[in-house]
Amino acid sequence: MLEIKNLEAYYGNSRALQGINLKIETGKFMAVLGRNGVGKTTLFKAILGLMDRCGGEIALGGDRLDQMPTYKRAHAGIGYVPQGRGIIPTFTVRENLKMGTFARTGNGSKTYDDLVFEIFPVLREFLDRQGGNLSGGQQQQLAIGRALLTNPKIILLDEPTEGIQPNIVEQIEQAIMTLNKVHGITIILVEQDIDFARRASDSFVIMEKGRVVAEGPIKSLTDNLMHKHMAV
């Protein structure tokens, strides 16, 4: 589904990613782990074409994306749920969801339109409420729903449970797993909750200082490996 070769990314003249190589197959779930500030969010921005400068190759379904502008990468099938959710607070829930449909190509398929409300019924209840008046958990559900309405082949999720009240975290985690396990959407997850990463993922990578320093099937993510690369 997604293949990255020798990816480098820069903020100005400062290199933030160095020689990243990773591959995720269709329908699989990958966790990207590491301490704060090691390049996890930067990796997502590089995949989306949001960095000042990048080198290397990015391919989705065998088609090269690395020379495309961000909107064409979205059209190609990359959905994104940014850290902090990125909803527009003065837009209603309905309007925020509508933003997701702009990434569809042509007339756009309605494949996931009903699924958004099936997974997140609260969004149907609050369609005319401004996004800024939702709780943190509701905003996160809205951000995931908006990404789903792009009709993605793959969704990049950047710390989707961060700052969410505990009683909503389980709902969001279950929704993410349903999108992957039931509906076959490929997912790459940046997450600090290692227990969730272990439950949901098929594979993992660990990053340090803009590099991948460990990777493998999720069953090989041992406590010793976590302590070596992620202990504060």
Results as ranks from 00 to 15, higher is better:
G131D: 09
G131C: 15
G131F: 06
G131H: 12
G132N: 05
G132P: 02
G132L: 04
G132Q: 03
G132W: 04
G132S: 03
G132I: 01
N133L: 09
N133W: 04
N133G: 11
N133Y: 07
N133V: 03
N133K: 14
N133H: 11
L134Y: 05
L134I: 04
L134S: 07
L134W: 08
L134V: 01
S135E: 08
S135F: 06
S135N: 10
G136N: 12
G136R: 10
G136E: 15
G137E: 09
G137V: 10
Q138T: 11
Q138S: 06
Q138Y: 07
Q138P: 04
Q138H: 06
Q139A: 13
Q139F: 00
Q139W: 03
Q141M: 15
Q141F: 07
Q141S: 15
Q141V: 09
Q141L: 12
L142M: 13
A143Y: 00
A143G: 05
I144K: 12
G145E: 11
G145I: 08
G145R: 11
G145Y: 08
R146T: 12
R146N: 13
R146W: 05
R146H: 04
R146I: 08
R146E: 11
A147G: 09
A147H: 10
A147Q: 09
A147F: 07
L148T: 11
L148G: 11
L148C: 13
L148A: 13
L149W: 14
L149M: 14
L149N: 12
L149Y: 14
L149F: 13
T150Q: 15
T150W: 13
T150S: 15
T150E: 15
T150R: 15
T150K: 14
N151M: 06
N151A: 08
N151C: 06
P152Y: 14
P152T: 15
P152S: 15
P152E: 15
P152V: 05
P152R: 07
K153C: 09
K153G: 10
K153N: 13
K153Y: 05
K153A: 14
K153H: 10
I154H: 06
I154W: 01
I154E: 00
I155Y: 08
I155R: 12
L156E: 00
L156P: 01
L156T: 00
L157V: 04
L157H: 01
L157R: 04
L157D: 03
D158N: 13
D158A: 13
D158H: 11
E159H: 10
E159A: 04
E159G: 09
E159N: 04
P160V: 11
P160C: 14
T161H: 00
T161M: 00
T161A: 11
T161I: 03
T161Y: 02
T161F: 02
E162S: 02
G163Y: 01
G163Q: 02
G163T: 02
I164A: 00
I164P: 00
Q165S: 05
Q165Y: 01
P166W: 00
P166L: 02
P166C: 03
P166H: 05
N167P: 00
N167L: 08
N167R: 12
N167G: 02
N167I: 11
I168L: 14
I168T: 09
V169W: 12
E170P: 06
E170H: 14
E170K: 15
E170N: 12
E170M: 07
Q171P: 06
Q171K: 15
Q171Y: 07
Q171G: 09
I172S: 00
I172H: 03
I172D: 00
